[in-house]
């Protein structure tokens, strides 16, 4: 009897709590659809539903922020980083994971890279801004290279941790058949690590997609934008037209919302796996 009661109160708490999540989203949607003339200073002027559901704000915001261009850049950077992370970080995780137990060199390299996790971006930011400019990498490609380095500690840790569960016997059997280490890796080990690829993909994609600081510091000089960067620039130029601004915010949230609705299960699993391991 007490059990049923406590569950009911849990449900009430959860529904109330949910309003703190729904309300900001509701706010974003209604303001994004309204015209400035509908926005009065009273609370119902702000929160009431728009009189007409018109897409004009979105059309204008898209034009001002060059939405498709920023979206393209964000997609390019995210997909490339995720793809390269899965290929290169898994290889590195493999090389280090298989050798760190019996080789001083590999265990040193492993510690060296994993301890990169403690290096805050703040200390790298200024030298990197200079360095990428000197190397002609102050663009989206430079940002991808940096992400490959920033997420390497975490991903190498995840991959080499996962490798512990994969028996050496599999590789030895392939070796007996005459396959090279390189071939064995791609034919046997890489496919087996699939669950970890999913985790790495989710963690890296979320982090890269929403990151502001790296593109801000590295790409600021170029006329290229990512979606978050476009919001930042938009805010400093047109921040007072809230309807337009909110249309722009909503536009920038839609891709990740769609991704979340489609892959919710994988995302939740990925995030938990990444954190717990």
């Amino acid at each position: 009897m007490t059990n049923i009661k406590s569950n009911k109160s849990a449900l009430v708490v959860l529904i109330l709590g949910l309003s703190t999540i729904v309300f900001p989203l509701y706010l974003t949607i209604v303001i994004a659809f309204k015209q400035p003339s509908e926005m009065t200073n009273s609370i119902d002027g702000i929160l009431s539903l728009p009189k007409v559901w018109s897409l004009d704000n979105f059309r204008e915001a898209m034009e001002i922020t060059n939405f498709w261009h920023s979206l393209g850049n964000s997609l390019l950077i995210t997909l490339l980083t995720v793809g390269l992370s899965i290929l290169l970080h898994s290889l590195m995780g493999y090389a280090l994971g298989r050798n760190k137990a019996h080789s001083k060199f590999y265990s040193f390299v492993y510690l060296f890279i994993v301890s990169g996790m403690f290096v805050p971006f703040a200390i790298l930011m200024m030298p990197l801004a200079k360095q990428t400019a000197e190397m002609g990498l102050a663009n989206w490609f430079g940002v991808v290279l940096l992400y490959m380095v920033f997420y390497m500690p975490m991903n190498v840790l995840l991959y080499s941790g996962y490798l512990v569960n994969i028996p050496m016997a599999l590789e030895e059997a392939a070796k007996v058949d005459g396959a090279s280490t390189w071939r064995t890796y791609w034919k046997i080990i890489f496919p087996i690590m699939r669950p970890m690829h999913a985790t790495v993909a989710v963690l890296t994609a979320l982090a890269v997609w929403n990151d502001v600081m790296t593109p801000l510091v590295i790409m600021a000089g170029s006329d290229q934008n990512t979606l978050p960067l476009a919001q930042l620039n938009f805010q400093s130029q047109f921040g007072t037209n809230y309807n337009l601004a909110f249309a722009s915010y909503l536009l920038s949230l839609i891709p990740i919302l769609i991704f979340y609705i489609i892959c919710q299960k994988q995302i939740l699993n990925g995030v938990v796996n990444g954190a717990v391991k």
Binding site: L14, G17, L18, I21, P24, L27, T28, I31, N41, I43, I46, L47, L206, W209, N210, V212, L227, P228, Q231, L232, Q235, Y242, A245, F246, Y249, S252, L253, I256, L257, F259, Y260, I267, L268, V271
Partner: peptide, 24 residues
Amino acid sequence: AYFLPNILGSLVVGYIFNYFFTYI
């Protein structure tokens, strides 16, 4: 639903709350 806030970009979330604190 409760995980939703985590996937949204913190910059845009910040802007939305900025409006909330300033006007609402």
